[in-house]
Design a protein around this nucleic acid. Structure first.
Lengths: 168, 168
DNA sequence: CTTGGAATGTCAACAAGGCTGACGTATTCT
DNA sequence: AGAATACGTCAGCCTTGTTGACATTCCAAG
C-alpha cells in the first residue's frame, strides 16, 4: 500500500506505463542538472570545466591510474583527455609519473593543490547528494543506486564495480 | 532489517559515509552515460545532437509551448536554442505558430515527421529505462524517483512537477 | 638484434553546442 | 507615446568532443 507502481512490490513484472517511464526520463534530465550545478559554479571561477572535474575525480579515486585506464573510464579520445590533462599538469594539480615496470605508461596522481581542488568540488557535490539522500530516506537510497546500476552499459558497470571494490 | 544503510529505515538521520556518497556520485555519472547512449546513436545517424533531442522531447510533452517556456525548461540561451530550433523547423520536424491571443509568442508543435522521430528516440530510451526498472524492482523505482527529485534545483523541480501534472 | 605492435604524446583541423553582446521588429502593456 | 516583452539574428568566442597523421619510446617475439 505504500507502493505507487505495482502491488507485487520488489521483484516480478511491473506495470510500467509510458507516462511512468517518461517521468523517470525527465527526472534523470533535471536531476543531472542539479547534480552538476554546484561543481560547475566552482569550476567556472577557476577557468576549468566539467572535463577537468571528471579527470580529477577519477585520478583521486584511483591514484596512479594510467592514461589508458582513465581513457576507458571517461569514454573520450586520448586527444581530448590529453588537452585537459596537460592544463592540469601545467597548473600543478596533477603529477604524471613514468611507469617503473612499464616505462611507456604514465601514472597519474593529484598534487596537494589538485587534492585541494578535488576536495572543494566533491564537498559541494556530496553536500547536495547528502541532502537528497536525507530528504528521500534510506530505503529510497538503496533503490536509487539499484536503478542507476541497472541503467549502465556493461563496460561502465565494470568500471563502476572496480571503483566500488577499491573502497572496501 | 532489509536495509543496508541505516537501522531506522525511511526517515530520520542517515549515517552517510563519504564512500557511500561517492558511490552515488559515480553511479549518477555512469548511469547518465547509459541513459543517453541509445538516443545518441540514433541521433548521430541523422546528424542531430542531444540538443535536438531535448527540444523535441519537451515540445512533445507540452505541445504549443512557447519559445520562452522551452528556454527556461532547457536552461540555455535563446541563441543556442534558436540554432537548434531553426534546423528542426527547416527540416520539417517542428512547426512554429504565431500566437492567437499574444501575437508576439510562437507556439511550437511537432509535425508528423517530428513525432515519428520523437517516438523512435523515446522508444529507445524507454526500453532502457524499463529494463532498469524491471531489474531493480518496483520498490527501487519509487526510491529512485524520490532521490532524483530531491536532487533537483528548485526551478527545475517546478518544471518537473508541471510536466508531471499534465499527465494526470 | 631487429622488428612489430602497444602506449603515449602532439599537431592540425573541424563540429556541436554552450556563451555574451548588440541590434531589429513586432506586439502589448502602462 | 513610450516602455517592456517575445522573438529572431548576426558575430564572435570557448569548451569539449571528434578524425587523421605522425613521432617516440619501449616491450616482446622471432
Amino acid at each position: 500500500m505504500a507502493e505507487g507502481t505495482s502491488p507485487q512490490g520488489g521483484q516480478g513484472l511491473l506495470f510500467l506505463t509510458d507516462e511512468q517511464l517518461r517521468k523517470g526520463i525527465e527526472a534523470m534530465f533535471f536531476a543531472y542538472r542539479g547534480f552538476t550545478a554546484d561543481p560547475d559554479r566552482i569550476l567556472a571561477e577557476k577557468d576549468y570545466g566539467r572535463a577537468h572535474h571528471r579527470a580529477i575525480h577519477f585520478i583521486h579515486r584511483s591514484p596512479g591510474t594510467t592514461v589508458n585506464n582513465l581513457l576507458s573510464i571517461l569514454g573520450v579520445t586520448k586527444q581530448s583527455l590529453n588537452r585537459v590533462l596537460r592544463t592540469l599538469v601545467d597548473d600543478g594539480l596533477v603529477r604524471s609519473e613514468v611507469g617503473r615496470v612499464d616505462k611507456r605508461e604514465r601514472h597519474l596522481f593529484l598534487t596537494e593543490a589538485g587534492a585541494a581542488l578535488e576536495r572543494e568540488l566533491s564537498d559541494a557535490q556530496r553536500d547536495r547528494m547528502r541532502a537528497a539522500y536525507r530528504a528521500a530516506g534510506s530505503e529510497a537510497v538503496a533503490g536509487f543506486r539499484k536503478v542507476l546500476e541497472a541503467m549502465m552499459d556493461e563496460d561502465m558497470r565494470r568500471h563502476y564495480e572496480t571503483l566500488k571494490d577499491r573502497g572496501r
